[in-house]
Amino acid sequence: MFEKLIDSFEKLCLQIIIEILLVPVTIYKLFKEPHRCYDFAVQEMEKEEAERFLDYLSPIKLSVYTSVIVSVLLMDYSGEHNFISRIKGLSMVEKALFIFMMNNFTAVAFSVILLGYKKEKVNTITFRTLLFSFIYTTVYTSTPFFILILSAMFLGQTVNVQSYLNHLDQLSVSGNYGSRDYFFFIIFIVFLIIGIIGLIKLFKALHYILKENLRYHPYMIWFFTLLFFLIQVYYARGFV
């Protein structure tokens, strides 16, 4: 009994390690080619369930890891409050679940809209394909912020990112910047560049998904692409 428990724990740990390693691989593939948000979902849904998402992380798991990381970063440190910490009485797991639901609200909404257009039911492969595709597109808004926040944590040697940003505000008055502070400014420039690239990739990914599922005039596809893009960016700014 004990040996079976140890074996199960070993498999769980190994699975978690593999999935964590697949996070950067998946992000890289999606950043390289935006159309993969939809193509990956289509290809995987055509496979048997046991064979799906072996070479990269599934969109649901990717979103779960993202939500957990954000819930940790946005915890209430040193009495400083933020949006998530104002949700009184919630544990880190509950906060992660809340963030997961809010981050994927646009994915669910977009999928339902397209499903209505295609006149299909929710419990179909089409819905899961669309949902997976739209969840994958959140990579383009979340990745730049993770780079910036994790860099601030590393350079400031604290999980309280806000305290390091306050430290930078104080240095802006005195002008006594250290090597780590200059390195952070370089990271910030990288964040801006990747952020702009991410927005372009997001627009391309949304356009590709809509082009594959809508049969309206091209101008209508561009219109809905822009509409979905603006809505997703609006929600991303508050929950990423």
Rank of each mutant, 00 (worst) to 15 (best):
D7C: 11
D7K: 12
S8R: 13
I16W: 14
I17L: 14
V23S: 04
V23C: 07
V23N: 06
V25R: 13
T26P: 04
I27E: 07
I27F: 10
I27P: 01
Y28P: 10
Y28N: 11
L30Y: 01
F31L: 03
F31W: 12
F31I: 09
H35F: 01
C37T: 13
Y38Q: 02
D39P: 01
F40V: 03
A41T: 05
A41Q: 04
A41P: 09
V42I: 06
V42R: 13
Q43F: 07
M45S: 13
K47A: 02
E49G: 04
R52N: 02
D55A: 10
S58V: 00
I60V: 14
I60Q: 04
K61M: 10
K61R: 14
K61A: 05
V64G: 05
V64T: 12
V64E: 04
S67Q: 08
S67P: 12
S67H: 10
S67V: 09
L73W: 00
M75Q: 13
D76L: 07
S78H: 11
G79M: 06
E80P: 02
H81D: 14
N82P: 15
F83C: 03
I87R: 06
G89Q: 02
G89R: 01
S91H: 12
V93S: 08
F98D: 00
F105A: 10
A107E: 05
V108T: 08
V112Y: 13
V112R: 08
I113Y: 14
I113A: 09
L114K: 08
L114V: 13
L115G: 11
K118W: 00
E120L: 13
K121T: 12
N123D: 15
I125F: 02
I125R: 15
F127V: 13
F127H: 11
R128K: 15
R128E: 08
T129H: 03
L130Q: 09
L130R: 14
F132C: 05
S133F: 09
S133W: 09
Y136F: 04
T137E: 04
T138I: 01
T138C: 04
V139E: 07
Y140N: 08
T141S: 14
S142P: 04
T143C: 09
P144F: 00
F145N: 13
I147C: 05
I147V: 11
L148F: 15
L150I: 07
S151K: 07
S151H: 01
A152P: 11
M153T: 08
F154Q: 00
L155I: 14
L155N: 08
Q157L: 05
V161L: 03
V161I: 11
Y164Q: 02
H167E: 09
L168W: 11
D169G: 05
V173F: 06
G178E: 06
G178P: 09
S179G: 02
S179R: 10
D181Y: 00
Y182E: 10
F184T: 06
F185V: 12
I186V: 15
I186A: 13
I187Q: 13
F188E: 03
F188Y: 15
V190C: 15
F191N: 03
I193R: 15
G198L: 07
L199Q: 11
L202I: 02
A205L: 05
H207L: 09
H207T: 00
H207Q: 10
L210P: 01
E212F: 07
R215F: 12
R215Y: 09
H217S: 10
P218E: 00
M220S: 11
I221A: 07
T225Y: 04
L226W: 15
F228K: 06
F228N: 03
Q232K: 15
V233T: 11
Y234Q: 15
Y234D: 08
Y235R: 09
G238E: 11
